[in-house]
Design a protein around this nucleic acid. Structure first.
Lengths: 367, 367
DNA sequence: CTGAAAGCGCTTACAG
DNA sequence: CTGAAAGCGCTTACAG
């Protein structure tokens, strides 16, 4: 009896997810007809309304959900894009992911997020290839050569986000910091500031050309206006800014020192400090306040990034907003477009402008 | 000729990814042997070392990567877990994702991130089912009933994170705020504070029981110590805290007002303000400073969450750290374990303790 | 308009 | 020790 039953309706007795075959059985039609109707090819196939309805009804009653994995195997398109991050704790890359996710979902793609460390990088690369991701969005500072190697061989589409130097492969979406720097200095100068100092990156690990972008733009803007930048008006800071809670991985000292050096400068302290990142600016404000200097009455401070801490701090920070979310959006859109058009591996550069947001940490120059 | 060539080595002439069949052909073995070796069943199958080597060499030379999708179709296990978020811009849920991702990757699972809005919810649900996700991690405040319905039918494993009220299905991982509140009040009392006010949530959309947790714990701690909470010592704030940059979606007013009401309280202002979230605390500090009150010399402020803004603000904020990342880790671990053990749909509750982090916004009571 | 059949790339009994 | 064969759930020519 049991065996007989299995022969009659083998599919219906299974316990796993509903398959197209079960829908077909229930509707008394073939599996092909079911897929045609369900995939919107009913018109093209001239399937009559009544038949369509039978399929639809059966599918609904059974709660049928097509197996996207099986479809992918068949079509060779996974519809999945990977977002690989190593700076996993850094706020901006969440916003970038949000932008990317919105764009991906809008285009019918789905986002797979993978975190990497030096130790897990190779395994993650392997996973990306095995999962047949159609494209990769990269935000990793680790040596990407092994990745590029595999990816090039597979012809996989790649976009990098917020890389400071050109990449050997794929699309690079980064922020155009020149705009932000221009607006920041214009803003300060309009407020009457002439003695403007800069807190720059003290990290050496990154390629110099890239790392010095903002510092270079600052110098350019100053030179353009004939404003002097005295020796020692560029300080450097190398705080670690990740981590939260009890397992604090951040260390504010080098930031305090950098700001302190500026404030104690023998040639007199600047009336404004422009910083290469918000963390430096916020810590600089702390340094000012510790010395009894009021921000912005006694001294103005401008950051770069627009972290959430910027609008929540006291005073709210005037800062150049990096287009984190927009970069993610643009990157994903470009990736998807290049997927449709056939990915062109030749490096291509896209810059999204940053822009100044004026809040409470800047004011007229004190006299 | 062409046809002949195709017959000889049909697989090798294909342009797409390398398949196990190509590896087998290259090694002069059968596909089964290839999978056996590559999937570590060589010993079990007693495949001799020399044969194994042939497989390995062929696979390496061809750059073979098994198609994980095809494997999933066959085995019925996708190895993918979905993380669904609607509060997509809120910092804490990034940390939760990081924790979840770490745990998932540790267990060999891969994370798919899906954002939802009221409009896209149904489509995302469908995608989850079609993708044959093995489990779902939920951080969504939208009405989850349609989701639960589908998920229950499919028997899909589910864990919610940071839900304030019990759920009808699956595992709920939330923070135990009682611990944080206890530590906060103990800390303030040890500093000599007696007049402690609270800034609470002014939102009405969430279920009352849940929403009032922290407020309730505060009241409990105060009562426990015989400390009075005068009428009006509980203020309410309903700032929107998302968004950044130019497209500001936040509005600080109600926070300033709430703090202001406390500072201007007819019965005299409190010496310490405890806040249900960091945003409220940071804005309260602004309110204090606008009135010329120094934090912590004149008044102490304690937050709740430990946003990144907490350690970056001036002064750095003393706050109850919610275990965002740990919740993600625990949730994912529980999900994976229940997957292995066979998912038990009966609701289950797990609480991860929050804990106080003392920074610079609290000090001895002024006299 | 609808169905039978081949095939996507894999895994897994089953034979030998 | 190794291979031939069936099957996972889908899509897509191809017939009729």
């Amino acid at each position: 009896m049991v065996r007989r039953h299995e022969e009659d309706a083998p599919q219906l007795s299974r316990s796993g997810p509903v398959t197209a075959a079960m829908v077909a059985a229930k509707a008394g039609l073939s599996r092909a007809t079911v897929t045609h109707v369900l995939n919107g090819r009913a018109a093209e196939m001239q399937i009559r309304p009544e038949t369509q309805q039978r399929v639809l009804d059966a599918a609904r009653e059974l709660g049928y959900r097509a197996n996207a994995l099986a479809r992918s195997v068949r079509t060779g398109k996974s519809g999945m894009i990977g977002y690989i991050v190593d700076d996993v704790h850094y706020e901006p890359y969440w916003h970038t992911m949000v932008g990317a996710m919105a764009a991906a979902e809008h285009e019918g793609f789905t986002l797979k997020v993978l975190s990497v460390t030096a130790e897990t990088f190779n395994e993650r690369i392997r996973q990306c290839m095995e999962l047949r991701l159609e494209g990769l969005m990269l935000r990793v500072v680790l040596d990407k050569r092994p990745l590029y190697e595999e990816v090039i061989r597979a012809g996989m589409a790649v976009v990098t986000v917020d890389e400071w130097v050109p990449q050997p492969y794929g699309i690079r979406v980064s922020a155009d910091d020149a705009v932000g720097c221009h607006e920041a200095i214009s803003h300060l100068v309009a407020l009457g500031h002439r003695r403007i100092a800069f807190i720059s990156s003290g990290f050496e690990s990154q390629p110099t050309e890239g790392m010095l972008n903002r510092e270079g733009f600052f110098l350019g803007e100053m030179a353009l206006r004939g404003l002097e930048v005295p020796d020692g008006y560029i300080a450097r800071e190398r705080m670690s800014v990740y981590g939260r809670g009890a397992s604090v991985e951040h260390d504010v000292e080098s930031g305090l020192t950098a700001a302190g050096n500026l404030l104690d400068h023998p040639a007199g302290r600047p009336t404004a400090i422009f910083c290469w990142r918000d963390e430096a600016a916020l810590v600089a404000i702390q340094a000012c306040q510790r010395r009894g200097l009021r921000v912005p009455q006694d001294i103005s401070v401008v950051g770069f990034s627009d972290l959430s801490a910027a609008w929540l701090s006291n005073p709210p920070l005037t800062t150049c907003a990096s287009p984190w979310e927009e970069m993610g959006q643009v990157a994903m859109r470009e990736l998807v477009n290049s997927l449709k058009a056939g990915f062109d591996p030749a490096p291509r550069e896209i810059a999204v402008p940053s822009g100044l947001i004026v809040r409470g940490s800047t004011g007229s120059v004190p006299h």
